[in-house]
Design a protein around this nucleic acid. Structure first.
Length: 628
RNA sequence: GGACUCGUUGCAUAGCUUGGAUAGUGCGAUUGCUUGCGGAGCAAUAGGUCGCCGGUUCGAAUCCGGUCGGGUCCGCCA
């Protein structure tokens, strides 16, 4: 039961002590201490100060005295700190044994928040008209990491990628191919998604500025896209699927995979909208306007200060946000499923089976990718619209927080990086723009990182063969990219700088992977199979106990990350584990000590660290090379 | 005009949900540590009125109100 055991023991005992006192209930904290204040601390005396009309320090002393009469197995002693905190010191022999034995189990770090219920995580959802850029990567990595964490928290996770294949952005590249004669084959073996985004899309939209007659062409193409039988729609389907294939290559390369691809064009043609429209009317969630600026439209009333939102235009067509409503309801399993399913044409490297929706019913296969809860990862510019969806879904589904919009701030370009792309910003950061061609593609960042890590690895290991270097460079560059995208808070803007992103020192994935490689090498050189049948009382150094404590915090960190949908919690945990291990590594030698018992105890600890680091990095989708 | 969000050392960031002890970390700067289980490392020094003002409290980076500065959103576009 890890470090939580001692927290539970203290909490139970404190509750017993308090039950003998003439006080009303208080909710106190029992937490791991800051360094230098014992191992566990409680704020209980502060909370009682008012009721008992005594100073926190007095109360702490009184509680400490009473606590010493409690039955303790994991606590050695308690101590009243002059500040008023009540600090506890662990019985490390027992606690170490508990934590290290648990860490060897496959289930280590598992927490049960989901109770095996289903949850949908939707992420990526990039228009299939361009290659993924570094901003999209933040979405993808957040979504993938959250999925992994929720799975660890005992949810059954369905991962969806929504393919918006019928919007304006798709119309634009279709115009490029159809009206400006862009070749369907990219030049010099360029990836098709890059070709569409860099060349066709950017150059086509440039022409809108000089030729206003194109606006009509654009509208017509958009209309034709909605009709599945039109020549234009069939052509667009072909093109967008080729782009999608390119985008998926990029995602797979980052160790991201999906369960199902949902095509917007099919949602539109499925008739789901008509059903949800009827529901909305029946439940009085939308109203028809008889007067005012929105006369003739169906609208959702804004909350007090907010404007009404038009859902159906006066000409009877649905607006952008309206398309999201049936999809959100579908994800929650509120609508009868109009789709059949077929497997995607190519296997995912993770070998997870990838399905896609289809309206073709010649060979009907049904699947269920809905969930009791839904998490939609979209950047925070969409917060306003997502709020409306969330509120609507709250009226359809009774469980709280059934539909969650997981928002995050965007990735901008540093002025230096913007400059290399030809934009002078006066020292300010710049928003990326697919339309203007102002972006750094995910594939190019990966390639540059990989070149650098290859050089670095080769310099350290001239003897290594090419395949192994390739593999290590891949692991390190994917790890670096993923770690940079989730190590900070979701609502902090990431200013991406191409040069700074190449750093492999300090708070980076490679620092953590390096710690792992060090641990691996010790175990490899030991020529022994690490065992948990060792003398735990030999592990007494501060650096050893600190490492054990950190290992024991794993499940608490997973719980925190899952409850708060916060990937950075795990990122910080991986970093903390590595710091603790590197510090141990400098202070305590493991091999050639001339004391077999101590060696075995330390090997047991090193192996425990290795297992824990591997498991926690796995939650971040970061691989662990044994050498690097 | 309205709403949301960010503001912590030269730069970047943690801590804020649940108020208490010495505000933690990385980059950069200065200085040490490689005949040692791998220096992508370790140890140490310098650098902070937690944007500003006020309130609540015995106690505020943390809660509340206001204010300033940066960013974003607010269409019968998608």
């Amino acid at each position: 039961m890890t470090f939580k055991s001692i927290l539970d023991e203290i909490e139970n005992n404190l509750n017993k002590v308090l039950s003998d006192l003439p006080i009303s209930d208080v909710v106190f904290s029992v937490e791991p201490s800051k360094p230098g204040f014992g191992n566990v601390s409680s704020n209980v005396s502060f909370l009682l100060a008012k009721q008992l009309k005594k100073s926190p320090q007095h109360i702490a002393e009184m509680l400490s005295e009473k606590y010493s009469h409690c039955a303790n197995t994991l606590v050695l002693k308690s101590e009243a700190h002059p500040s008023g905190y009540l600090n506890f010191f662990a019985n490390w022999d027992k606690l170490t044994q508990l934590i290290l034995s648990e860490s060897y189990l496959d289930t280590f770090g598992d927490v049960d928040i989901g109770k095996n219920s289903t949850i949908v995580v939707e992420h990526t959802s990039v228009n299939p008209n361009k290659a993924l850029h570094i901003g999209h990567i933040r979405n993808i990595v957040i979504g993938d990491t959250i999925s992994r964490i929720l799975k660890k928290a005992n949810y059954k996770v369905n991962i969806l990628n929504y393919i918006d294949d019928s919007g304006l952005q798709v119309a634009d590249i279709i115009i490029g191919f159809k009206h400006f004669g862009y070749d369907q084959e990219p030049p010099d073996g360029k990836k098709f998604d890059h070709y569409c985004g860099d060349d066709v899309y950017v150059k086509t939209t440039e022409k809108y500025e000089t030729d206003s007659s194109l606006e009509d062409v654009r509208k017509n193409v958009l209309k034709e896209l909605e009709n599945g039988d039109s020549e234009t729609a069939k052509f667009a389907d072909k093109i967008t699927r080729r782009v999608l294939a390119g985008q998926l290559e990029t995602c797979w390369n980052l160790d991201v995979s999906y369960d199902c691809l949902n095509f917007e064009s099919q949602i539109i043609r499925s008739g789901l909208w008509d059903k949800i429209f009827e529901n909305l009317k029946e439940m009085d969630l939308i109203e028809f306007e008889n007067e005012g600026k929105n006369v003739g439209c169906w609208v959702i009333r804004g909350d007090n200060k907010e404007e009404d939102k038009v859902i159906v235009r006066s000409n009877g067509t649905a607006t952008y946000i309206a398309k999201d409503i049936p999809y959100a309801a579908w994800k929650l399993g509120l609508l009868e499923d109009p789709f059949n399913y077929e497997q995607y044409g190519k296997e995912q490297p993770s070998s997870r089976v990838l399905w896609q929706t289809t309206l073709n019913d010649s060979n009907p296969v049904s699947q269920n990718f809905t969930g009791e809860k839904v998490i939609t990862v979209i950047d925070s510019r969409q917060t306003r619209l997502q709020k409306i969806i969330t509120s609507l879904m709250g009226k359809f589904k009774s469980i709280p927080d059934a539909y969650v919009h997981l928002g995050y701030e965007s990735v901008t370009l540093s002025s230096e990086t913007a400059k290399t792309l030809g934009l002078e910003t006066d020292g300010k950061q710049a928003q990326m723009s697919g339309r203007k061609g102002l972006y750094v593609s995910a594939d190019s960042v990966y390639e540059i990182l990989k070149e650098k890590t290859k050089e670095e690895t080769l310099r350290r290991h001239p003897e290594m063969d090419g395949d192994e270097i390739e593999k290590i460079a891949h692991y390190v560059s994917v790890g670096t990219l993923r770690y940079e995208m989730i190590k900070q808070d979701l609502d902090k803007i990431i200013t991406f700088d191409l040069i700074k992103s190449l750093s492999l020192e300090g708070d980076t994935a490679s620092y953590i992977q390096y710690a792992y490689a060090r641990a691996s090498r010790i175990l490899e050189k030991s020529d022994r199979v690490p065992s948990i049948n060792v003398d735990f009382s030999l592990l007494t150094e501060d650096s050893e106990l600190d490492l054990i404590k950190n290992i024991g915090l794993f499940n608490l960190q997973v719980r925190d990350a899952a409850n708060n949908l916060s990937p950075k919690v795990i990122a910080r945990y991986c970093h903390d584990l590595s710091v603790a291990f590197n510090s141990f590594y400098e202070k305590s030698k493991v091999l050639d000590l001339g004391d077999e018992n101590l060696e075995n105890s330390r090997l047991c600890l090193v192996n425990s660290l290795k297992i824990t680091l591997e498991k926690s990095l796995n939650l971040l989708g970061i691989k662990t090379p044994d050498r690097m």
